[in-house]
Amino acid sequence: MTDETNLVDGPRGPKPKRAFTRRNIFVYGTLLLFAVYYLLPLWVMVVTSLKGMPEIRMGNIFSPPVEVTFQPWVKAWSEACTGINCDGLSRGFWNSIKILIPSTIVSILIASINGYALSKWRFKGSETFFAILVLGAFIPYQIMIYPIVILLREAGLYGSLWGLVLVHTIFGMPIMTLLFRNYFTGIPDELFKAARVDGAGFWGIFIKIMLPMSLPIIVVAMILQITGIWNDFLFGVIYTKPDLYPMTVQLNNIVNSVQGVKEYNVNMAATLLTGLVPLVIYFISGKLFVRGIAAGAVKG
């Protein structure tokens, strides 16, 4: 089967057929074992969310539901309580959407302009600012969160949606700028020179030449930002008020609240619901997601 045997045995005799070589059993066996480890939690979430509470108490968390019920999903979405509010996760979902859309747009817009300026219009000091920006990606957020609270309060944005949008734009900027800078650096300088000879200026070249060419990287940036912003917890809890809490914060409050009887099926339904948006993005985008995190991960 493998190239190896092919090369050694070559033209002599028929090609040996060995699907179950020891090598293959080892390779596929290990991969399957790991696949089970990675898939198990997903499976547990799904089956638990489809069981009733009596079945959960009696049975085994890994076994499929005997009697499928969608009640936990309904309850998680529209009835689960956080504190005094009992309108379910739906509020958090819509809050997250409200946060997600402007944050994604603003952060990508600003980062793409940064990347463009840094790659094609370098000015004195621009590389220094960029170096600070990239180093900033490694600074623990904890050291910056309090002064940002003060700045936002001074600007009258603390606790508001736009305050959080600003925070997401700021903390997404290093990686997004890097992404766009590297992409624009890859666009030949001569193209940029040609456009200047043709009389296009800073914004003209950006809008008419660069942006139309950067659709692939915009998609990658969107995937990164959507999952990143959706999954954020820390900024949501610090910079917004309870009625604007994103879905992750609300989920944690529902599941880890100490009052009342624990309804594990509702908790798992709520958890799955929160994970659904990034999961959908992940499975739709496929290779682009990998490209995005690879671009973000392997710096330089």
Binding site: E190, L191, K193, V197, G199, I209
Partner: peptide
């Protein structure tokens, strides 16, 4: 002066045509 105001035309090695 800006390149576009100098009354020049330029041809590049990599052609530098706008791909879109």
């Amino acid at each position: 002066e800006e390149p576009s105001d100098r009354g020049i035309g330029m041809v590049f090695q990599s052609y530098a045509l706008y791909p879109q």
